[in-house]
């Protein structure tokens, strides 16, 4: 049977640090009806927080901007989450995804964001264009509930 989309949501919010918690609440509210286990929920909350924080601190350098958070749920219990910005973009995505790589070492950044997103998702894709923005897509299939 082909998988079907069963729910979707798209939100746009300002690039402000207090919206990191908002983004986590949105994804929690979206996932809860799917009955994820506690670990899955915590993983997805953390992954979303990483991506949104990257938009705020890197894409928009703590300035004004719009962040888009989208989520889709499918009949096979897979979830697709997209976080995108129209910020500075990433010149070398492969390098940016390496553990411990950061362009802001002086600001207590450890370069672990993408590694964390990767370990908390089944698949992570990053598409970026310098000067135009970045789109991060996380997919994860939730465990079957008995």
């Amino acid at each position: 049977m082909k998988k079907q989309q069963i729910n979707h949501v798209t939100c746009r919010f300002a690039s402000k640090s207090q919206n990191e918690a908002l983004a986590r609440s949105i994804i929690t509210g979206f996932l809860l009806p799917l009955d994820p286990d506690a670990e899955e929920l915590a993983d997805m909350r953390c992954a979303v927080s990483e991506a949104v924080t990257n938009c705020i601190v890197h894409a928009y350098r703590n300035g004004d901007g719009i962040i888009t958070l989208g989520a889709k749920a499918y009949s096979d219990r897979s979830v697709k989450i997209v976080i995108s910005d129209n910020g500075c973009g990433i010149a070398d995505v492969e390098q940016a995804r390496k553990p411990l790589f950061t362009t802001l070492p002086g600001e207590d950044r450890c370069g672990m964001g993408f590694s964390i997103m990767e370990s908390f998702s089944d698949k992570l894709t990053v598409i970026s264009h310098v000067g135009r923005g970045t789109k991060v897509t996380l997919t994860r299939r939730l465990n079957d509930r008995t």
Binding site: R24, C46, D108, R109, C110, M112
Partner: peptide
């Protein structure tokens, strides 16, 4: 809740 920013605080 903790993410890499919290871990960064610890490392810093």
């Amino acid at each position: 809740f903790i993410d890499s920013s919290g871990l960064g605080l610890i490392l810093g």
